[in-house]
């Protein structure tokens, strides 16, 4: 299990989507979940850097596991996700600060994501409010942004959650760069997908 988490953590780190020690990934196996250890370097995850804990209830392992453990647990309890990636990709964060939602302009983004909601919370890390709002958004979308914080993406496999994270970032980059030109896009699905 740790190898899977380690592999994708390093990929995300190398792409600049997880910076140094920040960000976290988890995998659900039945009633148990495996999550990155708090403060572990994203490109050096070893067996001792993945913490096993319960999906159902809080346990003493919270002293070691990611500070977002409760958000991951809440997502597993309220969605069909079996893997979660929480990352801090730069264009995603920029777009979360500029827009109330992001409608992808790129073909893959609009085909796969349709719309990327932006969740706004007062307390950005490990709060009940974050838990509630992220869970609510992930019931309808596979990937979301949290304003000023980063992305949450879910999937049946870690590879899927990783893929969604990459798509979120690609769509945000495209949207941001097109808007930066001030020229307007010849292909914009905003009207179509705003209602998604």
């Amino acid at each position: 299990m740790w190898r899977e988490i380690s592999k994708f953590s390093k990929k995300l780190h190398d792409k600049g989507y997880m910076v140094s020690h920040s960000g976290n990934l988890s995998i659900r196996c039945g009633d148990r979940m495996f999550i990155k250890r708090r403060g572990a370097a994203c490109d050096e995850i070893g067996p001792e850097d993945v913490i096993e804990t319960s999906v159902e209830e809080d346990t003493g392992t919270i002293v070691l596991s990611s500070s977002e453990t409760e958000v991951h647990r809440a997502i597993y309890k309220s969605t069909s996700a079996l893997a979660i990636v929480h990352a801090h990709p730069p264009y995603s964060i920029v777009c979360s600060l500029l827009y109330d939602e992001v409608i992808p302009m790129d073909a893959e983004g609009d085909y796969m994501l349709h719309k990327i909601p932006v969740v706004v919370v007062e307390k950005l890390s490990g709060s009940k409010e974050l838990e509630l709002k992220v869970c609510e958004a992930l019931k309808s979308y596979k990937g979301i942004l949290v304003r000023g914080h980063g992305t949450f993406a879910i999937g049946k496999l870690m590879e899927e959650a990783y893929h969604v994270t990459c798509m979120l970032e690609a769509s945000c980059m495209t949207r941001y760069l097109v808007d930066l030109t001030g020229l307007g896009s010849k292909r914009d699905k905003t009207a179509e997908y705003r209602a998604w």
């Binding site: 708090r38 919270i62 002293v63 596991s65 453990t69 490990g126």
Partner: peptide, 8 residues
């Protein structure tokens, strides 16, 4: 915001 002082 610290998981030890706020939760554990």
């Amino acid at each position: 915001q610290n998981p030890v002082t706020d939760k554990a």
